[in-house]
């Protein structure tokens, strides 16, 4: 198994770990968003979606453990990359200028990533590890977003998630080696469209719940 450690522990291997776990999170986000959209069909639709999901029992537990494992890999590898890359240039330039390659997404990856980690903990405390006896998930979410502070935090978090994904998604394809003259322009467009879907799709939900529903 030494070969596996050598392969995954190399600079390209660490990139691969970031790419695969990152793509995993992107598909999770797509599924999470699809489920959340049931909110627009009213509280019964949303509550029954939640009930159906929880009736899957062990499958959900397995999925949660899988996500937790992915998160650990993504965070530990990302931190290692951040530290190693910082060390790779001990004397900094006194003048830095981009040639146009970097984007806000690529520039801020470690920082947006760190913010998202804190946000996810906050999010789980709010809606996951909360006592749900005598109430419904719809009520919990609805009353949370009556607080303007929550709405602002969630909208900002979604903007930051979109910035992270705008670089992460196309970058994952480049990393797994899928850079093709025919498909790369399309993949880049998809990354930006997907980021927009995250901002609008997730970001509008708190606003809708707090002010419209």
């Amino acid at each position: 198994m030494n070969w596996l450690v050598n392969t995954l522990g190399s600079s390209i291997g660490k990139k691969l770990l970031m790419a695969i776990t990152g793509l995993g999170f992107c598909s999770f986000l797509a599924g999470h968003l699809a489920g959340n959209l049931t909110i627009y069909w009213g509280k019964d639709a949303f509550n029954s979606y939640a009930a159906h999901l929880h009736s899957l029992g062990p499958i959900i537990t397995m999925a949660e453990l899988g996500l937790l494992f992915f998160a650990l890999v993504h965070i530990l590898t990302g931190t290692t990359l951040f530290y190693q890359n910082f060390k790779a240039r001990p004397v900094r330039y006194s003048m830095n200028k981009s040639a146009g390659g970097r984007t806000i997404g690529s520039r801020t990856m470690p920082y947006t990533g760190f913010f998202l980690l804190i946000f996810i903990v906050f999010h789980l405390i709010n809606f996951h590890f909360i006592d749900k006896t005598g109430t419904t998930i719809y009520q919990i979410v609805h009353s949370a977003f009556e607080n303007i502070g929550y709405v602002v935090i969630y909208v900002i978090a979604m903007i930051i998630a979109a910035i992270h994904v705008s670089h992460g998604l196309w970058s994952a394809f480049q990393t797994i080696g899928a850079n093709h003259v025919k498909y790369m322009p399309f993949i880049k467009v998809v990354s930006y469209v997907f980021s927009l879907i995250i901002v609008i799709g997730f970001g509008f939900l708190p606003v809708y719940l707090g002010y419209i529903a």
Partner: peptide, 14 residues
């Protein structure tokens, strides 16, 4: 002791 690539793409621009 080189750093790890994070697809910043500054290299191909320069």
């Amino acid at each position: 002791g080189f750093g790890n690539c994070t697809n910043e793409t500054e290299c191909e621009a320069e």
